[in-house]
Each structure stands twice: as C-alpha cells, then as structure tokens.
C-alpha cells in the first residue's frame, strides 16, 4: 500500500510542533541519516549542492544547528525566537510503498526582541519508509521572499 496522505501529514505536523516547542533533539530523529534540510535562495533551484542556499544541512549540520540553538552561546538565539507555524494546503505529488513527495504551505510568525516577522513558504517534502517508520529524506523550504532581503533567522524554518 502506498504511503497515505494522512500518515505523511502526521509526520510533518509532528515536525512543525517540535520546532515550535523547541524539541530539537527529537526533531533530529525525524530525518533519515542522509536526509537534507534545505532553504534555497533561487526559487527555481533543484540541484541545491551546486548553488548558494540559506541553509543546506546534512545530518552533521542539522546537529550543529541544534547545538547552537540550545547552547546559550549565540546571542541571536539566547533566548531563541519564539515561533508559531501552521501547515496547510497539502497535496501528495506522488506516493509508493517506500517513499512519497508532499507539497504544502507554511505560514510562520516569529517573535524576537519585541518584533514580529512573518514568513510564508512552500514546503516540499520527500518522505521515506524505513525500519523505524516514516522519515524525512528531504525538506525544502521555499520562502516567498527568498530573493529579497531577510532578517536574521536563528531558528529552524
């Protein structure tokens, strides 16, 4: 049986909840060992390794990002920004027994230093069925304003 939309949405909703509530160590476990978390700049980029991105994290970089967020040694993340995000508009692009591609919208609001920022993004997920259940093999956060000037984002989108 192919991976269902319900199962896929359950996983990425869990991810969103963990990120908003600072469960970063558990968040790391949602990814496959060779999974990637990518925030591209170019809206048309597909071959992320060959271009400059905001973030192009393998397992090692994801772990470093979490250490940084929790260390208290980064002034932009001490304390980290608070975030609330909503995922919606889910569409399964393709699905098989072993993997699926899901697209959805994310609206995120950030509060830090008394200022609020909004980030709208299209999310593209590649999910894979593993012995430990469904995992994230690729998450691409295509920010609506990726080609414009951002402000510092010291958290995980």
């Amino acid at each position: 049986m192919s991976i269902t939309l319900e199962d896929a949405v359950a996983l990425i909703t869990l991810e969103a909840d963990m990120l908003d509530h600072g469960d970063f160590h558990d968040w790391l476990k949602l990814y496959t060992p060779d999974g990637r978390y990518v925030v591209p700049i170019d809206p048309n980029a597909e071959d992320f390794e060959k271009v400059l991105n905001y973030a192009y994290d393998d397992a090692e970089m994801r772990e470093k990002r979490v250490v940084r967020l929790l260390s208290g040694r980064s002034i932009s993340a001490a304390p980290p920004a608070r975030t609330v995000r909503l995922l919606s508009r889910y569409r399964m692009m393709d699905s098989s027994e072993t993997s699926c591609t899901l697209r959805c919208a994310q609206m995120l609001q950030e509060l830090r230093q008394g200022r609020v920022h909004d980030y709208a993004a299209n999310l593209n997920y590649r999910l894979e069925m593993t012995n430990d259940g469904l995992k994230i093999a690729l998450k691409v956060v295509r920010l609506l304003i990726s080609t414009e000037a951002l402000t510092a984002v010291s958290y995980i989108l």
């Binding site: 925030v39 400059l52 991105n53 905001y54 973030a55 192009y56 970089m61 470093k64 990002r65 940084r68 980064s74 002034i75 932009s76 993340a77 951002l150 402000t151 510092a152 984002v153 010291s154």
Partner: peptide, 18 residues
C-alpha cells in the same frame, strides 16, 4: 559561506544581533 554567512548562518545572525 552558508555555514557562517547570511541570515541563517552560524555567524551573521549573531553579528546582526550585536
């Protein structure tokens, strides 16, 4: 470049905060 620079790097956001 991605590791240190830019709004999601490990260096620049701390500079910007300062």
């Amino acid at each position: 470049h991605e590791h240190f620079q830019g709004p999601m790097g490990f260096g620049t956001p701390d500079d910007a905060e300062a």
